[in-house]
Write a protein that binds this DNA or RNA. Structure first.
Lengths: 359, 359
DNA sequence: CGGAAAAATTCAATCGATTGCATAAATATC
DNA sequence: GATATTTATGCAATCGATTGAATTTTTCCG
């Protein structure tokens, strides 16, 4: 019985076939072909827009497809065509289990990657890997057949593993450091140069005793520290290393302790991240120290929140969205079979108000 | 020619078979079966740990598998078994194209979801949907056959679409508002109650003229505003709505304008998010206004960064990790065929230092 | 040692879309 | 109007793992 007072044809009205029989949902190409009076092969070509099928049938099939809300089974499609259209994005939580996946730098990078990847018509398979628990984490992901390529958000302390896998698996790009001779493609900034940039700025602003805030277990942070050390040694300034975790929750308590105990031993801070810098600002403020007149502070990353600290944070900028674009570009060309080279971008100093005007 | 001075057997040395022939990589169950002298079927069962295959062969196959670094083709496996082991996590960017995927609240939720999902042995397919461009965004994801279930991080302005899809697609859970009678399962906090909580706290602290910061295009924010309005009307306090974008980059300029122009018309602020509150704090500070003595400020969400503002932010807490757990739990039971109910959690007030001690 | 029962393995169909090749239908050419 | 040519569609193998049923091998017991 047709509905008596149907208020117009809404798109939802499609469970009853016009021949009067209730039809099961059209799930496969064969189902759709049966309705259209052709075989699955033809339907497949029609949906792909192939010129091999006549315009008339193609349009008929397309109409039927949308009428029945037909959806191609992606799994079957991917199996046959051997192109998954998916890219694995992996966050290795190596040296710091506690480093939660929601680390703002990684998340910002992930956001930009997501934009780039989506715009190129790929999907994202997000993986959170804990190498300590599964040493074959990267092999699993690369060999699963699920993804056309893999992006690593950071190398953590897994340099060796990445090198090993990259020897045979090509479509792999990591955000992170580049070392001469390495096999895997890395896109990142020159962390040593960034550290040096920060140190020089502090010295130019009149600081004599530097402190570096953040643990150096990860390669990238270690290099930032090395950059600071290079400059400090060169000019004979003192340098204090105050290791703390990268995660918001853990660093606060640690830093409170460290900055109070060691408070007299520095007058210029390079923080391993903007987050650390922000926390340090807060603590220094609580101690009644003036920034930048008593202590200068420089952050690292230039996340959006660096503009919102009080005072606004001077920081070493990494071009995250540019980096994301380069990563995806390289990955795509590797997937296409090309050879890809690493990229080391130059960091830049963003001067705000936690450093003193230089002489 | 064998390497002359191989320094021990590294795990990489496995491209040469012991029968002397260079063997191609073992890619399929059949390949592995050939080596082990059994059929693909047996290998399949062996790898699955089935009791149907004898312990001896099972162990032999397992050994060969790890020796050759065999990886099951997940696509084929998923096609056959009709269980993908993947969960779609979708961020609908509806009412605010500019609302970047890296919104800290969503990212924090995503982080917790990722933890929960990974721990239950699922993978994550991350999708960034722009409903304005593709009205069938949700149908595509649900019907793709790629995922066993779908989680929506926020409902944006897509309530209707979600309801329509949820009518036939059951394993779907959204973070967001619940309205009596809705079909889809939502997990979220009571935003109206949260808004009311904030407003009452401001009034108790002595504010008489309230302002709400943030645009109300999304349901959830609209409800927070409604909660504030309820209370304001009840006690006859004035309420000013100052709409601004949710994204860090855009809100700053907008708020600077608004807070300067309308600065005399309020002495208590409810911000739609901690981010907005943080930005407001910064601007108020620049205007020389004291928080909380001149103006009280309450944020929303209780993100980790709320503890790091100056002064530390009083805010309405949403239990993000608890919410993530509930979402995944519900989704999993829906995947198993169960019926699931929505959950409205109570928000709570976290008192820090941007509100005055109440009388 | 023979035959039944139990255990281990093989066989073959299946999941659903894709695609080269074969065939049928429509159009062109003389 | 008959043949050559183009165009459209059907057919069937394929991607690789899974699984019920069939078959082979092993074990058990009188």
């Amino acid at each position: 019985m047709p509905p008596a007072m149907d208020p117009g044809n809404t798109p939802e009205d499609k469970q009853v076939e016009n021949d009067g029989a209730e039809t099961a949902k059209v799930k496969t190409l064969a189902d759709l072909g049966r309705i259209a009076g052709v075989t699955a092969g033809t339907v497949s070509r029609a949906l792909a827009g192939s010129e091999l099928v006549s315009k008339r049938t193609r349009e008929r099939i397309l109409a039927l497809a949308s009428e029945h809300g037909f959806q191609l089974n992606q799994i079957a499609s991917k199996l046959r065509s051997k192109r998954t259209g998916m890219i694995g994005v992996v966050i290795p939580l190596g040296h710091e289990r506690s480093q939660h996946i929601s680390d703002p730098f990684f998340m910002t990078l992930l956001g930009h990657l997501a934009d780039e990847i989506t715009e190129r018509g790929y999907s994202i398979v997000l993986e959170r890997a804990i190498p300590e628990e599964k040493p074959d984490w990267l092999d699993r992901i690369c060999g699963s057949g699920m993804v056309d390529g893999v992006i690593l958000i950071g190398q953590s302390d897994q340099f060796e593993t990445i090198e090993r896998v990259a020897a045979t698996y090509r479509p792999l790009v990591a955000w992170g450091s580049y070392h001469v001779g390495q096999r895997h493609c890395a896109v990142g900034t020159d962390n040593r140069a960034g550290g040096a940039l920060a140190a020089r700025r502090l010295l130019a602003g009149g600081s004599k005793r530097l402190a570096f805030l953040g643990e150096t277990t990860g390669v990238e942070i270690a290099e930032r520290f090395a950059g600071v050390r290079d400059v400090a040694e060169q000019v004979g300034a003192s340098l204090l290393h105050l290791p703390c975790h990268m995660s918001f929750e853990l660093m606060t308590g640690e830093l409170e302790g460290l900055l109070t105990q060691q408070g007299e031993r520095f007058d210029g801070i390079v923080a391993a991240s903007d987050l650390i810098a922000m926390t340090a600002l807060k603590i220094l403020h609580g101690q009644g120290k003036q920034v930048p007149s008593d202590v200068q502070v420089i952050g690292y990353d230039d996340l959006p929140l660096a503009t919102q600290t009080m005072p606004p944070l001077t920081t070493i900028r990494q071009d995250i969205s540019g980096g994301a674009r380069e990563i995806v570009q390289r990955l795509q060309s590797a997937i296409a079979g090309g050879d890809i080279a690493s990229l080391v971008m130059a960091p830049s100093l963003i001067e705000r108000e936690t450093t003193r005007r230089s002489a």
